[in-house]
Design a protein around this nucleic acid. Structure first.
Length: 715
DNA sequence: GTGAATCATCTTTTT
DNA sequence: GATGATTCAC
């Protein structure tokens, strides 16, 4: 009855059937969690194919590569010849489009795709070039600003140097400089893929025409998490025929910080006035008790279209909510709970642990190791961001794209080779003077006056080595990596590095194996194709749902997945909701949706934990239970008071021997870390009094008086 | 000029 | 508590 995998049309609800059978024109599927949304999309694609539409005329866009793979498998399972359907993420689709139209965009198709670390080094260069105060314009901040510009399809030239405020002017200049750095390196960041594709469609009607002839039916999953650029791309692709189907749930929008705009759902009805709207409100996934908890939580959000969650399953087990003393005990509690579940015959791959930030996986992992519970951490880019892997990729990117200075720096710095900072600085000076890449400059290094002849010879031999690799590149990706690894000196340097080097060697061997696999599967895969593919491939895509292991992941990664048993940890103020997101009501509502997403992943069994103390930035701090706990109808205070004294009173006096002070509202205070601030609220709880302070940095923090070491500001 | 060692900084979420 | 920038010793 619950089988979401099944494809028996007769088992569809009337709404689902309506969505599947609506083949021409615009369709908006508003679907709650567990409503069989992905099933509807998949079946709709199958229905299109079975009614005679050529698979290659269908384009389905998913949120992750993993989701794309799964959808592909399901479509192939339920159709004959479902192979030609284009299924990918927005980013992968845009990459392909950009490679297809180099003349229209002026982008050479061997571009590098920059990940976050390449971006940081590029933005640093841009900031330096602009000669602005580094403390006000930090790399992370500027990358965030630029990313928002790009996602809103604002180009650096669009930012007025006259009418904008001072910060925007500077940001605009840094944005322009950053663009120049990327262009010089023949590189694109993730946002560029979207932005350039969006403008390609906007400014070249003939391209738009060709693409809408190719993709006569467009489907977009997780539409609530599309940003403006993605919205324009989808609109542009469907403009000619209007066959566009999108599915989404505003209550599951958790990427607002990345530019996702729920307004896209509202705009859909305006853009496509004839759009049919289908609502899927029945939930086939979660037990009644889990669902009513989720409903209670999400109802607190005020900026939301009222939508009901209709349970179709029995009430089920009680949701377990528990407090532990600290993160270690919480982790042990998780492990114990999982042991219990295993004893009742639960499969390991039907258990997942969710948390707000990646660093929270560590105590859990330690507990699992101690308890011998097999697990997999599903993380963003774990494998490809390993140092040794990035080193190898540096060489490979340089082989494909000699203009990529970041790749040059990475490759030349993998291990000591007698070329140091001074030489690189001089090389960079020479290269920028002649408007050539570092790589080209290295090839001519012996004729650079500032560089000593023996050092210059080393640079030239590095250049010749890379040139040599180019010849190997035709014989397959695996082969290139093998020769790069052996001949660059990287292998020798790692092998001389003991145990640590040994594991690095193993990782690179794993890379070679996967590349060789790619060689044998891809029909005409080149090194360039492979590089651009893995740049958009994250480790969460490698997550294996079949393997007998418990899954650990952030709440963001959990979106779109489901498990029989779910454990969510760290329900504490500052963590969930996260302190960086608690500034505005909108952000708080997004945190609430994030928790909602986590809860609604669970089919049968849900466990929610929080710790009374947690190590934050190296400090052991007493926590405040998350307001979300109260919102789901649970009073954490009781568990806090009961055993607080036994466990911690002794330590308390050692942490801070001073007696509890009483602060008045509006009083000026000083904190060793956060600086000065003004008391906003004082909760007199005797020795456990809490003071809420708005600091001059703009942050508002709730602090336990006895730990915070607040002093009254003299004045 | 190079490479190791120390010091300081910051710490959300992801394609 | 990791990563990067800077200093320091050869």
């Amino acid at each position: 009855m619950l089988s979401v995998q099944g494809f028996d049309v007769n088992s569809l609800t009337p709404s689902q059937r309506q969505a599947v059978n609506h083949k021409e024109g615009a369709l908006l599927v508003l679907a709650g969690p567990g409503s069989g949304k992905t099933r509807v999309i998949t079946q709709r694609v199958a229905a299109l194919i079975n009614s005679g539409v050529r698979p290659s005329n269908i384009c389905a866009i998913t949120f992750t590569n993993k989701a794309a793979d799964e959808m592909g498998q399901r479509i192939r399972a339920s159709t004959q010849g479902g192979y030609g359907v284009h299924i990918s993420t927005f980013h992968s689709l845009c990459m392909r489009i950009l490679r297809q139209y180099p003349d229209e965009t002026g982008i050479k198709s061997n571009f590098s795709i920059y990940d976050d670390r390449d971006q940081v080094s590029s933005i640093k260069e841009a900031i330096k070039y602009c000669q602005v105060d580094v403390t006000n314009y930090t790399p992370a901040k500027m990358l965030g600003v630029i990313s928002r510009f790009k996602n809103d399809l604002t180009r650096s030239g669009d930012i007025s140097q006259e009418t904008s405020d001072y910060f925007s002017q500077i940001a605009g200049r840094i944005y322009a400089a950053y663009d120049k750095v990327l262009a010089r390196n023949n590189a694109m960041d993730f946002d560029d893929l979207l932005l350039k594709a969006a403008f390609l469609l906007q400014e070249h009607p003939e391209v738009r025409q060709q693409l809408s002839e190719r993709f006569r039916y467009l489907l977009v999953d997780e539409y609530q998490d599309t940003n403006h650029a993605q919205y324009q791309i989808a609109k542009g692709l469907a403009l000619a025929h209007g066959n566009i189907c999108v599915t989404g749930d505003p209550d599951q929008s958790i990427y607002r910080w990345r530019g996702a705009d729920i307004a896209n759902i509202l705009a859909f009805e305006k853009d496509w006035p004839d759009a049919v709207i289908v609502k899927l409100e029945e939930n086939f996934r979660s037990s009644g008790k889990i669902l009513s908890l989720a409903d209670r939580l999400i109802s607190v959000n005020t900026k939301r279209k009222e939508k009901s969650l209709i349970a179709t399953r029995p009430e089920g087990d009680d949701v377990v909510i528990k407090a532990y003393d600290d993160a270690e005990k919480e982790a042990r509690g998780v492990a114990e709970r999982i042991r219990e579940l295993i004893e009742t015959g639960v499969d390991l791959n039907e258990i997942a642990v969710f948390y707000r930030v990646n660093s929270m996986s560590r105590p859990i992992e330690e507990a699992f190791v101690a308890e011998q519970i097999p697990y997999q951490v599903v993380r963003g880019m774990e494998f490809y961001s390993r140092k040794e892997i990035r080193d190898v990729l540096g060489y490979l990117k340089l082989i494909v794209n000699g203009a990529d200075n970041a790749a040059f720096m990475r490759a030349i710095g993998t291990h000591p080779r007698g070329i140091g900072k001074t030489t690189i600085d001089r090389l960079a000076e020479y290269a920028s003077g002649r408007m050539i890449s570092l790589y080209e400059a290295a090839g001519a290094a012996t004729s650079i006056e500032m560089i000593a002849k023996p050092t210059g010879a080393k640079l030239v031999s590095f250049y010749n080595m890379i040139e040599g690799f180019k010849k190997v590149a035709d014989s397959g990706v695996g082969a290139v990596i093998e020769s790069v690894f052996a001949e660059s000196g990287l292998e020798a340097s790692l092998r001389a590095d003991g145990e640590k080097g040994q594991s690095a060697v193993e990782n690179i061997n794993e890379l070679i194996t996967s590349a060789a696999k790619y060689d044998s599967q891809a029909q005409e895969g080149s090194l360039l194709d492979w590089l651009q593919m893995i740049a958009l491939y994250s480790d969460s895509d490698a997550y294996d749902a079949e393997v007998a292991k418990v899954s650990l992941m952030t709440l963001h990664v959990a979106k779109g997945l489901e498990f029989d048993n779910v454990l969510i940890i760290g329900l504490e103020e500052g963590l969930l909701p996260h302190e960086r997101s608690s500034v505005s009501d909108d952000e708080l509502e997004e945190e609430r949706r994030l928790f909602f997403v986590g809860i609604t992943r669970a089919r049968n069994n849900l466990n929610i934990y929080h710790a009374k103390y947690r190590m934050i930035r190296g400090q052991f701090l007493r926590t405040i239970p998350s307001k979300f706990l109260y919102e789901i109808g649970y009073n954490p205070q009781a568990s806090y008071e009961s055993d607080f004294a036994d466990d911690f009173d002794d330590d308390d006096s050692q942490i801070d021997g001073t007696s509890t002070e009483k602060f008045r509202v509006n009083e000026l205070v000083c904190h060793s870390k956060f600086g000065t601030g003004r008391v906003k609220e004082f909760l007199d709880l005797g020795p456990n009094s809490i003071v809420v302070v708005t600091f001059n940095t703009g942050e508002t923090k709730s602090l336990m008086v006895k730990y915070a070491k607040l002093t009254r500001a003299a004045r």
